[in-house]
């Protein structure tokens, strides 16, 4: 489903990704682990289409299509979803309105009928249960005044509502206590399915106790230096990135 070939990316003149290659099939969950500054967030942003990331070499194919040629909203409409490490606050836009605009944009792109306000509220309440998101939070402005855990749950809630083909979870575990981590992980696990692929980016092995990956990749200094099965995460925890990257 996703094929990244020799990807080189510069940010503000500095090369961050230095020839990253990766293949992810439908139904698979891959984890990318790496230390700070290894290029984890750059990878997630470049896949989602954020401005300011210059691809100097390589390509990314998504279902055979050149993903990098698409605008962010086109990628999202085709089923690419990024759960943000730092979800953005948008004062003045209610969470429910934001999500309705998003869901209807995706439905429109798929040729499905847009949901009206009543249909949408029923749909949103159902999805909110998945991550035990307080219905009160639906009415509040997007992420405004949300706690760290609420913001992350809101991301998984959005993922549940948008039903992506490819989900990229950028440090969705960071800043979560163990209860919140469990809720978020349960939500993500419930969304695993044969047609959906997930790229779970994390700094800590802990998350992978809850979201068990099919493959683990170690990202150091812009390249994948090692790949293996889920036991690699434990090995990393024990030995550290320096030894593996060296």
């Amino acid at each position: 489903m996703l094929k990244i070939e020799n990807l080189h990316v510069r940010v503000g003149g500095t090369e961050i990704l230095k020839g990253l290659s990766l293949e992810l099939g439908a139904g698979e969950v891959h984890a990318i682990m790496g230390p700070n500054g290894s290029g984890k967030s750059t990878l997630s942003y470049v896949l989602a289409g954020r401005d300011g990331y210059e691809v100097t070499e390589g390509r990314v194919l998504y279902d055979g299509v050149d993903l990098l040629a698409l605008a962010p909203e086109e990628r999202a409409a085709k089923g690419v979803f990024l759960a943000f490490q730092y979800p953005v606050e948008i004062p003045g836009v209610s969470n429910v309105y934001f999500l309705k605009a998003a869901v209807n944009a995706v439905r429109k792109a798929r040729g499905e009928k847009e949901l009206d306000a009543i249909e949408f509220m029923r749909f949103a309440r159902e999805k909110a249960k998945l991550v035990a998101l307080d219905a009160e939070l639906l009415k509040r402005a997007v992420n405004s005044g949300f706690s760290g855990g609420e913001k992350k749950r809101n991301e998984v809630f959005q993922m549940a509502a948008l039903e992506p083909r490819l989900a990229i979870l950028d440090e969705t575990d960071s800043g979560l206590d163990i209860d919140a981590l469990r809720i978020v992980s349960d939500g993500v696990n419930a969304l695993r399915g044969p047609d959906r692929a997930m790229l779970v980016i994390t700094h800590y092995q802990r998350l992978l106790d809850y979201i068990v990956p099919d493959r683990v990749h170690v990202l150091v200094d812009g390249r994948i230096v090692r790949s293996g099965d889920k036991t690699l995460a434990g090995e990393l925890e024990a030995r550290g990135y320096a030894e593996l990257g060296g």
Partner: peptide, 25 residues
């Protein structure tokens, strides 16, 4: 820019995202 990207990453087209944020302001 961060707000615009957040909306676009959720499939909202650029011109609509701009109007949503303009109105919110």
């Amino acid at each position: 820019e961060a707000q615009l990207f957040y909306l676009r990453a959720r499939a909202v087209p650029l011109s609509e995202a701009r109007s949503i944020l303009t109105f919110a302001f």
